[in-house]
């Protein structure tokens, strides 16, 4: 890993447990600015859990507990002085299943901006966000229509537009394409590559081709069975994506990326 790269998010010795059982243990990870980082690994390896620590969405899960330290621009985000609501404006999240609000396309974009006290011209912000999310041409004549009337792929790009409307620094994506068809997936991937000029993106994916196509860095997580019958995730290897796929240092990584398990 190039150490000179400026890290936006930094995880140090992060462990997360749900109601006392450890879900993922001892993760060290730096997310470099204006890059795409992909988290890959089998189910239950804790990649989504780690992602949800970056904007403290895990706070909303009853029984979730995090140990270790995560910094955003060198500020400890679990410090008592940091308000998670404020953090989530800067580290936004796009979910696995497109979840537009059951409101108009316009309102979907305007909601986040409005609640965060946006002072500028709302029409202009809506147009710019939809353009950045490469969906403007498809929806510009029906901004008053419900967001739910769009196709799944369009809904997901609407959710991305909604996320960038509040001008965050980091966009966390939790398997954003797993509910989409291949063509919609391709469009979202193109969008990710374009967004990287202005944003930092962390993407969890089950699709290894997707990781190799869109990401600059890849973190491979694996899971091992615990005595209690559960699973505990851990970070196996984190490197430039081409290294992970073509020259992995760990045998587990080699086996996973070549499709021998997972």
């Amino acid at each position: 890993m190039d150490e000179q790269m400026e890290a936006v998010l930094r995880a140090e010795q992060v462990s997360v447990s749900y109601s006392g059982s450890t879900a993922v243990k001892n993760v060290y990870l730096n997310i470099p600015r204006n890059r795409v980082v992909a988290f890959i690994g089998p189910s239950g390896c804790g990649k989504s859990t780690i992602l949800r620590c970056f904007n403290r969405m895990n706070d909303l899960v009853a029984g979730a507990k995090m140990d270790g330290r995560i910094t955003f621009n060198d500020v400890d985000i679990y410090d008592s002085s940091v308000d998670p609501v404020d953090l989530r404006r800067q580290v936004v999240m796009v979910f696995q299943k497109p979840n537009p609000f059951p409101k108009s396309i316009y309102e979907n974009i305007a909601f986040g901006a409005r609640i965060n006290g946006y002072q500028g011209d709302m029409d202009e912000l809506v147009e710019r966000s939809l353009q950045q999310a490469a969906i403007w041409d498809e929806v510009k004549d029906k901004l008053k229509d419900s967001g739910l009337a769009l196709s799944g792929g369009q809904q997901q790009r609407l959710c991305i537009a909604r996320a960038i409307a509040i001008q965050p620094e980091v966009i966390l994506m939790d398997e954003p394409c797993s509910a989409l068809d291949p063509i919609s997936t391709l469009r979202v991937e193109e969008l990710i590559k374009k967004l990287i000029e202005n944003y930092t993106i962390v993407i969890v994916t089950h699709n290894m081709q997707q990781a190799s196509r869109v990401s600059d860095y890849t973190a491979f997580f694996n899971a091992k069975a615990t005595e209690t019958g559960g699973k505990m995730g851990y970070l196996v290897e984190y490197d430039r994506t081409e290294n992970i796929f073509h020259n992995p240092q760990q045998q587990a990584t080699q086996e996973y990326v070549s499709g021998r398990f997972g």
């Binding site: 609501v85 989530r88 979840n99 609640i115 996320a163």
Partner: peptide
Amino acid sequence: DSLRQAGFALGAT
């Protein structure tokens, strides 16, 4: 619940 998550993830109280 996905709607609540969506709201929280945009920095809503």
